[in-house]
């Protein structure tokens, strides 16, 4: 099985402009196999989201000299793409193109565009990737169906497609965010605390659907999920990455680091 992500020797330094504080994230080595469902577990402030921004090509590694390896392999690639070179050469448009095409994001609070409807929000990644109108409609209907984006009116289930997102409940918004993250059929999906605003039952349903859609026939989508819910991680994920906060005594900086990368047998 190919590894979708292979990163080694990451040291990410963050400057908080407001407080003036400096944080660091250390990763010795993380390998994420293709088609896996991986969870990043750890307490708040240990650098989970920071790791996600680097892996999701939103930010470059700040200390490039220590980055031994940062590779991604996408479907159809014979050789992995060396992202450390892309960042070193500051090829932002190239990184943007990879992110646009191969990576999907479902963020913490849904982060939907308030001016758009559910359908328009789901269509965003597809339209950016140049899907035709028919392709968009077909895929959107498939996802609305899969995530159960309906509401009941006069005892009839009606699609939420035309609803403005500011009228959705937290759970509906989270499901729309998940649908949007995978609408353009990315190879790698980053999900930041997807169940934060869902009850256990809804979270269960959402993740079950996400997993089934990502690993259905013909799709080998890899999911990297940040969560605080260890139970949910154990239930759904093939791998678990644990991160812990610490303090670098020499520099007196707080830091987070990956302490464990273990295999898991989902329930």
């Amino acid at each position: 099985m190919k590894n979708v992500v292979h990163i080694e020797g990451l040291k990410q330094v963050l400057h908080d402009k407001k407080s003036g504080a400096i944080y660091e994230v250390h990763v010795d080595e993380v390998v994420i196999p293709e088609g896996s469902f991986t969870a990043i577990l750890g307490p708040s402030g240990c650098g989970k989201t920071t790791l996600l921004t680097v892996l999701g090509l939103l930010r470059a590694a700040t200390v490039n000299s220590q980055l031994k390896r940062f590779e991604m392999t996408f479907p159809g690639d014979t050789e992995p793409t060396d992202l450390s070179v892309i960042w070193r050469k500051n090829l932002r448009s190239q990184a943007n193109a990879i992110r646009r095409k191969h990576i999907g994001f479902a963020l913490q609070s849904g982060e939907l565009l308030p001016a758009l409807t559910v359908a328009e929000n789901i269509d965003i990644p597809m339209q950016i990737n140049g899907f035709s109108r028919n392709q968009c409609r077909q895929r959107r209907n498939e996802l609305i169906e899969a995530f159960g984006l309906f509401h009941s009116r006069n005892n009839k289930a009606q699609s939420l497609a035309r609803s403005r997102v500011n009228r959705l409940s937290g759970g509906e918004a989270q499901r729309v965010a998940l649908a949007r993250a995978i609408s353009h059929r990315p190879s790698l999906v980053f999900v930041d605390e997807p169940t934060a605003s869902l009850n256990r039952e809804m979270a269960h349903q959402a993740l079950t659907k996400l997993r089934s859609l990502c690993q259905s026939d013909g799709e080998r989508c890899t999911v990297l999920m940040i969560t605080h819910d260890e139970e949910l991680a154990r239930e759904f994920c093939d791998h678990i990455i644990r991160m812990e906060p610490g303090k670098d005594i020499s520099s007196n900086h707080p830091f987070g680091h990956v302490t464990e990368f273990s295999e898991n047998s989902p329930a």
Partner: peptide, 14 residues
Amino acid sequence: RGTIGILRVMGVSR
């Protein structure tokens, strides 16, 4: 800025 951030994350270029 939230909207702009989301668009950028989705792949909208600068």
